[in-house]
Each structure stands twice: as structure tokens, then as C-alpha cells.
């Protein structure tokens, strides 16, 4: 079937609606998983061994099971066990994504934090700084510089992982495009979604490049 200008515009508008959901999943996951990941990394580095152990087992499970399966679990298990639909489809996606990405982020944080030389902490200590002052004023900014590359990698993966939301019928962009395929036998909208992803990732790549450049004024 030929692509007409009017059908192109119509599809674009519909896909943009789906893309809005994609962006929303992306943004909410990022905003919630970034701080949660830091807390989880503190847990896995805790000197209290049982806490460190439990946290690491948790991270192992979350990283060891497909995200798609985790979305199913979060959405269906409460319903099946307790007939309790406590999460909408969209919220179930957010919960699953946030937990999953927080665990990945936590390992990146852990690597970054453990890579800071002991001497940085000691220098802060002998200058009479408190533990939290040392973390926030001395260590954190160095951690950010160290983790910016692995983080940008993970965040770019998140852009594309949002497509998994369709497994529980959340209408993100790829789901919208697939509906064209199944209802109108139109396949090109599915391929067309690539443009949206590429533009999104392109913008992120530029942004991370900018941050890296901003932080390149010093060598750690």
C-alpha cells in the first residue's frame, strides 16, 4: 500500500502519543531509580554483613531474571495470589523498571565509590570533616565523573527497554505501531518507530558528551 501524506501524518501523531508514554516510562524510571540505586549500593557495601549479603542476593536475582518476566511478576502475582489489582498496568511497569534499573545502577555506583582512593577519605578526616561532608563534598563528584560512561550506556539501554512495557498492554510507541500491523496490515509504522528511538538516543548522547566535557577540567 502506498504511503500517503495524510496517512503519514496520522500515523506520526498516533506514534507521538505512544512516544509520550515511552518518554514517561523513561523519565519516571530514571528519576526514581537513580537515588534508589545509590541506597542499594550503600546496602551492598554495608559493613553489617547480613545486610550486604541480602542486598547482593537481591541484586543477583533482579539482574539474573529477564526484565520482561519481572514485569509479569509485578503485574500478575498480586492479582493471582490475593485477587488484588493494586497496581495499574502503567504503575506495574514503573515499579518493575525502577527496581530493575536501580539494581543495575547500584552496581555502577558501587564500582565508582569503591574506586575512590582511600586517601581522599583520610584527607577529609584529618581536616576534621564529618563522614557525610566527605561523601557529599569530596567523594560524590569524583564518583559522578567515574560513572558517567557506564551510566550513559545503561540509560541508553533503558530507552529501548521501555518497549517491554507492551507485554502487559501498556501503549508505548512500539505497541501503538504493532496495532497498525495487526488491525490495518501496515508494517511501515513499526519500522518508522526507529526514527523516534534514534532521535531520543541521539539527544542523550549529545547530553552525556556535554557532561563528560564539563567534567574533563580535572583528572582524578
Amino acid at each position: 500500500m502506498a504511503i500517503t501524506w495524510s496517512s503519514f501524518c496520522k500515523v506520526t501523531l498516533r506514534l507521538l502519543e505512544g512516544f509520550e508514554t515511552t518518554c514517561l516510562i523513561f523519565a519516571l524510571t530514571l528519576v526514581l531509580a537513580l537515588p534508589l540505586g545509590l541506597i542499594i549500593s550503600f546496602g551492598s557495601m554495608s559493613k553489617f554483613k547480613p545486610l550486604a549479603f541480602i542486598t547482593r542476593v537481591f541484586v543477583w536475582i533482579i539482574r539474573g531474571v529477564p526484565l520482561m518476566l519481572q514485569i509479569f511478576v509485578v503485574f500478575y502475582v498480586p492479582r493471582l495470589l490475593w485477587h488484588w489489582p493494586f497496581l495499574s498496568r502503567f504503575n506495574a511497569v514503573i515499579v518493575a523498571f525502577v527496581i530493575n534499573y536501580a539494581c543495575y545502577f547500584s552496581e555502577i555506583y558501587r564500582g565508582g565509590i569503591e574506586g575512590i582512593p582511600r586517601g581522599q577519605y583520610e584527607a577529609g578526616e584529618v581536616l576534621g570533616m564529618t563522614k557525610s561532608q566527605i561523601f557529599f563534598k569530596v567523594v560524590l563528584m569524583q564518583v559522578v565523573k567515574r560513572i558517567i560512561a557506564p551510566m550513559s550506556n545503561e540509560i541508553i539501554t533503558l530507552v529501548k527497554d521501555t518497549a517491554l512495557a507492551r507485554v502487559i498492554m501498556v501503549a508505548e510507541i512500539l505497541k501503538v505501531a504493532e496495532e497498525y500491523a495487526s488491525t490495518s496490515a501496515l508494517i511501515w509504522p513499526t519500522f518508522y518507530t526507529a526514527v523516534f528511538y534514534l532521535v531520543f538516543v541521539g539527544v542523550l548522547t549529545l547530553l552525556f558528551g556535554y557532561i563528560e566535557k564539563k567534567l574533563s577540567y580535572y583528572k582524578a
Binding site: 584529618v126 570533616m129 569524583q142 582524578a220
Partner: peptide, 29 residues
Amino acid sequence: RESRLRFGLVFQSFNLFPQYSVMENLMLA
């Protein structure tokens, strides 16, 4: 914290804070 301020320590490996300028290193604490 109070007691250790009686002492200052200069490290073998300097341990300056790399993200801060010289003045910022001096003034932070």
C-alpha cells in the same frame, strides 16, 4: 573530630581533592 584538629597531616601521596581548585582545596574544610 575535635581532637584530631590538634594535629595536621601531610600525606606522602598529597591526597588533594582533584575536582577543586587550589583555593577551594584550602577553603573547603
